[in-house]
């Protein structure tokens, strides 16, 4: 972009760092010149095609300048620009800068402008999927996905997506997290039957990779959704107890059981049941002290709480 020609009627505003700045930055000449014109246009609140083009030129040099993105959004709205085409642009930038907060937020702004359009939503889900191929734990991509499906109440592809990602990498904690997000946010809710089949699903994973923390944490979360009268938690406790006995010691399993058994003790009225649980909890603490050395002090503390 030939700034001097395009903005010949604009008086550029230079950066004034003062006499002795704390951390002066040596900006490249092209960036400085673009920013000098940008400042002048922002100051005049100009919303035009040439400012839109200027923002793209600056974003190419520095995609993290949030004011530049904001001005871009204002120009797009003022010019009544094609927002679907803008998503293409955001994709181009986003595929180069996977973890840039601004470009992810920009998508949200643009998609909100478009409003509900199933084709757009599907395309967005496809874009996120492409990002997962690059990094399936990208926090920004997951946050955006959660926002998108909730905002448009569009849940039909979620289970398939997380199934696929967990299949690919059962240690993908973000995918497990999203599984929980799906069940606890979709309008249908989470029935005891859903819970039972999710427990089966998690236990199958736990059997395959006992030291994988993610399915254990997932079990921890979903088990809290059980209705007290259903007996689901008691039967889960038994399943996990057996699993621990069959295997070599499983730290995550024992720590999961300890939390559940402790809360059962707190709620139990029957003294003899309480005492059985209490003995078991102490045994778990002792085992954890033996096998999970790095947290020795914590398990010692937990044991002290039981006496």
């Amino acid at each position: 972009m030939d700034f001097e020609t395009v903005f010949s009627d604009v008086l550029p505003i230079p950066l004034d760092e003062g006499p002795n700045p704390i951390s002066p930055i040596a900006y490249p000449a092209e960036y400085s010149q673009a920013m000098d014109y940008f400042r002048a246009c922002a100051r005049a609140n100009e919303k035009s095609q040439r400012v839109l083009d200027l923002t793209a030129a600056i974003i190419e040099l520095n995609p993290a300048h949030y004011t530049v993105w904001k001005v871009r959004q204002e120009c797009l709205i003022a010019l009544n620009a094609d927002m679907r085409q803008e998503l293409e642009y955001a994709t181009e930038v986003g595929l180069e800068h996977h973890k840039n907060y601004q470009v992810w937020h920009h998508r949200e702004v643009v998609v909100t402008q478009i409003g509900y359009d199933e084709a757009v939503i599907k395309k967005e889900l496809g874009y996120i999927h492409a990002q997962f191929k690059i990094d399936s734990k990208n926090y920004h991509a997951w946050s955006y996905r959660q926002w998108l499906v909730k905002y448009f109440n569009y849940w039909s592809e979620e289970l398939k997506e997380v199934d696929g990602l967990i299949e690919l990498d059962c240690r993908n904690n973000s995918a497990w997290n999203h599984r929980y997000y799906y069940f606890t946010n979709r309008p249908e809710g989470f029935s005891d039957d859903d819970l039972k089949s999710e427990i089966t699903f998690s236990l199958a994973h736990v059997r395959k990779t006992p030291n994988n923390e993610s399915p254990w944490n997932y079990l921890r979360g979903i088990s809290k959704k059980a209705s007290p009268a259903s007996g689901i938690v008691d039967s889960l406790v038994n399943d996990v107890k057996n699993l621990i006995q069959e295997n070599e010691f499983i730290v995550h399993g024992a720590s999961f059981l300890l939390d559940i058994v402790e809360s059962r003790i707190a709620q139990e009225a029957d003294e003899s049941k309480k005492s059985v649980d209490s003995q078991y909890a102490k045994k778990l603490c002792n085992d954890l002290m033996k096998y999970d050395i790095i947290r020795l002090k914590f398990w010692t503390y937990r044991l002290s709480l039981l006496s």
Binding site: G18, A42, R43, N45, T67
Partner: peptide, 21 residues
Amino acid sequence: SPSSGRPFNPNQTTAEFWHHD
């Protein structure tokens, strides 16, 4: 940062409104 282009002035208590500053 001084990126909005305001002149350096550590002592001002009021200033004219600038868009995007």
